[in-house]
Every structure is written in structure tokens, then in C-alpha cells.
């Protein structure tokens, strides 16, 4: 690891629960994400990973339990207030702003996010973030002209432009072809080496092994294992959860 983890949790979930009618999508979930840590949230389809991210970002409200950002509760705040306190995210299905240019998309994060900028300062910072994710030279393009991976880069740059305390990546690597996947993993690794705090939901095992400091494994809404990627991926219960999915 490039930057040592400190001992203050940036993000903590305590008993976080989400029920939809009779269905329990997230059940009594506890975990901490430390400063400078890259935490992977993994598990079979439908195990509640994306719902967990939605609870943290405020897209959904927890039915019970609490979510803390640096010790302060954000459980019942609305999404915009959570974003301002320093939680930025990308979406499982890419969401870029179709009527705007690449630069304007990224500027949205810089203007309204955790650290708020305006005017030339916002443009300069957005440009810097665009360069960081590999969009230099494409700033004036409409997002409709971009390739798929470039739209993903726009989303990532928009999230980074708010200077978040914690970055939530919801299957950011999904749907990329093998070459793009290599680029994508390298990009996230650079963010990790900068010392950013990241919580990522991911299916790509190579990415999990090479990026994550720690993993939480979910099945049917509950946490079934937690530890380093190597530890959890050799845990018999985790293997059963994944294989069980393939049987079905």
C-alpha cells in the first residue's frame, strides 16, 4: 500500500437495514471504511450491494440502523446533503448529462459538491479532473459522441471534481472490453495510490484482488464475510454463496 491506513473510520454502517414491503434487501449490515482504504463490496447478484450504496448516497432511506460519515450521522439526510458532506458516486447504469459537454458534466461536480467552486476556478479544477481520468482533449465534446468507457470516465471525473471524502463506485468496471478493463483498473489503482477512500461494488474478480485492501461479502442482504480479498475468496461460506447462485 502506498499510503498507510489511519484508524478513523470515514464511513460506518451500523445495523443498516432496508425493507421493500416484505422483502429485506439489506439486513442489519455493519462495516467500516477507513481513511485511504479501498473497500470492496461483493456478493452474488441480488445480494443487496447496490441497495447498500443507494442507502449510503441517500438515493434510498434506510428502514433501520444508522450510517455515519466521520462519526456524524447522515442516515436521514437527503441525497444532496450527503453529497455536500463529501460522498460522491457513480451509477450502475451510466448517468451523464446528455445536453452538456464533457467539461460541463464534470463541472457539475465541482460547482455543487463537497468543495464548491465557481467560474474559472471550477473550470480549471474540472479540466484537471478530466485530465486525471484520461479525457484531455475531449472537453468540448458532447457526451453523446463519447465511447462507453469515456462516458464512465466522465462520471468518475464528475464524482472526483467534488473532492469527496469517500467515493462510491457502483460496478464502474462492468461492461468494459478486456483492453478497456485494463485501463479502468489502472485508473482506479492510480486513485488508490493518491490515498483516496473508495467503496466499490464489483463483480470483476481480478479488479477486486488487485485493488481492494479489504472486502465485505454480502449474500441475501446480510454480511457473510469480511477480510482481505484472499481471505474472503477462500472462505467456504463465500464459495457456497457464489456457487449456490450458479445452481439456481
Amino acid at each position: 500500500m502506498a499510503v498507510p491506513s489511519s484508524s478513523t473510520p470515514v464511513l460506518s454502517l451500523r445495523g443498516a437495514t432496508k425493507r421493500f414491503g416484505g422483502l429485506v434487501a439489506v439486513n442489519n449490515l455493519d462495516f467500516d471504511v477507513m481513511e485511504h482504504q479501498v473497500m470492496g463490496l461483493i456478493g452474488p447478484n441480488g445480494s443487496g450491494k447496490s441497495t447498500t450504496l443507494n442507502l449510503i448516497s441517500g438515493a434510498l432511506r434506510p428502514s433501520a440502523g444508522s450510517i455515519l460519515l466521520r462519526g456524524a450521522p447522515i442516515t436521514h439526510l437527503r441525497a444532496h446533503a450527503i453529497a455536500r458532506r463529501g460522498v460522491a458516486r457513480t451509477f450502475q447504469l451510466v448517468r451523464v448529462l446528455p445536453s452538456m459537454t464533457v467539461l460541463e458534466n464534470i463541472r457539475a461536480g465541482a460547482v455543487f459538491g463537497h468543495r464548491r467552486r465557481w467560474g474559472h476556478e471550477a473550470d480549471a479544477f474540472a479540466t484537471q479532473m478530466a485530465e486525471k481520468v484520461g479525457l484531455a482533449g475531449k472537453l468540448a465534446m458532447r457526451v453523446s459522441q463519447l465511447t462507453y468507457i469515456d462516458t464512465k470516465r466522465v462520471e468518475l471525473a464528475r464524482a472526483l471534481a467534488s473532492e469527496p471524502r469517500v467515493l462510491l463506485l457502483d460496478e464502474w468496471l462492468a461492461g468494459l472490453n478486456p483492453t478497456e478493463l485494463g485501463e479502468g483498473i489502472a485508473l482506479v489503482r492510480r486513485l488508490r495510490d493518491e490515498g483516496r477512500t473508495i467503496l466499490l461494488v464489483e463483480h470483476v474478480m481480478d479488479a477486486i484482488r488487485s485493488l481492494c485492501d479489504a472486502c465485505v461479502v454480502m449474500a441475501a442482504g446480510a454480511k457473510i464475510a469480511e477480510g482481505t480479498p484472499d481471505e474472503v475468496l477462500s472462505d467456504p461460506e463465500v464459495i457456497r454463496a457464489y456457487l449456490g447462485e450458479e445452481d439456481a
Binding site: S57, G58, A59, R78, A79, H80, A81, A83, R84, A88, R89, F91, R95, V96, L97, P98, S99, M100, A108, G109, F112, G113, H114, R116, R158, S162
Partner: peptide
């Protein structure tokens, strides 16, 4: 106008 969900998540009330 483009995407209200994104608007909320970048910090717009």
C-alpha cells in the same frame, strides 16, 4: 432538466 437523480447526487437541493 437533464437528470434529476444526478442533480441530487452532485449536491443540488
Amino acid at each position: 432538466g437533464d437528470d434529476e437523480e444526478v442533480a441530487r447526487h452532485v449536491g443540488i437541493d
